[in-house]
């Protein structure tokens, strides 16, 4: 700010063309975990990840935010989506400020173009100790766990909490498992209270925290001891990330994490309930 200018290394771009629509319990989190699993934690190193194609329209804004949030876990400088009607409706709903739209040039050059069939994305779990160690949750071997963290900047939006509450309501967190729910913002927290989600979490035996980075980076609350295993909807699972260097973090969607909390094992959310129709958890533009 003192100089009025800043230095930048201009990134190359990778284009992800999304086709079709996600199905069942697959979410934006599963999409980005499967992408990172395919291209690696440096697969988009210092690049821009651009998401477009007809499949974008099928993704909620909350899902797009999760994908963009985790672009850095593929090494990217940023993750951006083509603007569409949903983006505009969201922007009008959240802020009175006017906005300017940017679009890729028609002749934009891409280092790589990767086509993705959204219907092929399954609920994922990224095994320790890299976000790229993703594999289908159904193939995770029902590994026993000690803790579940649902929320954070990556997956603490209202739609995430609705999905988690859908699976936890009327069920209980497995004995011996700690389940911590952390809304991303005070606004999400208030909405979760109004919608009865917080009550559902508490009745299921989870604890609900004020928004905080908290356990995501081993800061406070839910710090893992040696040998402990957590399923988290956060963004990273490096060695020692949530506590002791001998602990383990598995990354998953809020629905998958909630299913793990109920069973005390790493499972596909379809194991405990059928997925509601796509769009069921989506925030309305009026929210």
């Amino acid at each position: 700010m003192a100089a009025g200018t800043a230095w930048f290394k201009v990134p190359g771009a990778i284009r992800f063309v999304l086709n079709g629509a996600l199905e069942g319990w697959a979410t934006g989190k599963d999409l980005i975990l499967s992408i990172i699993g395919a291209i690696g934690v440096d697969g988009a190193l210092y690049r821009s990840m651009e998401f477009d194609g007809p499949g974008v329209a099928t993704l909620s804004m909350d899902e797009r935010f999760t994908v963009a949030n985790m672009a850095i876990e593929a090494g990217a400088k940023n993750g951006i989506f083509a603007v569409d009607e949903r983006t505009r409706a969201w922007a009008v709903a959240v802020s009175p400020r006017s906005f300017k739209e940017y679009a890729a040039d028609p002749d934009a050059e891409y280092e790589r173009t990767i086509a993705i069939d959204l219907a092929s994305v399954e609920p994922q779990v990224a095994f320790p100790h890299l976000p790229s160690n993703a594999r289908p949750a159904a193939e995770a071997g029902e590994t026993p766990i000690d803790q579940v963290v649902i929320g954070s900047c990556t997956n603490g939006r209202i739609e995430d909490l609705r999905a988690a509450a859908f699976l936890l309501k009327g069920r209980s967190v497995a004995p011996g498992v700690r389940c911590i729910v952390i809304p991303a913002t005070q606004r999400v927290y208030q909405q979760a209270v109004r919608e009865g989600l917080v009550e559902a979490f508490i009745e299921a035996g989870a604890v609900v925290s004020t928004p905080t980075c908290g356990p995501c980076l081993g800061g406070h609350m839910g710090i893992l001891a040696a040998g402990e295993r957590a399923v988290a909807t956060t963004n990273r699972n490096f060695v020692g990330r949530m506590g002791h260097p001998g602990s383990e973090v598995y990354l998953a969607s809020p629905a998958a994490a909630a299913a793990c909390a109920v069973t005390g094992r790493i499972v596909d959310p379809g194991k405990i309930a059928a997925a509601p129709p796509r769009g069921y958890f989506e925030t309305s533009a009026k929210a």
Partner: peptide
Amino acid sequence: GDNVDTDVIVPARYL
């Protein structure tokens, strides 16, 4: 080796 992350360069417990 590869992918030396900032969590091992300086663990968050010392932040």
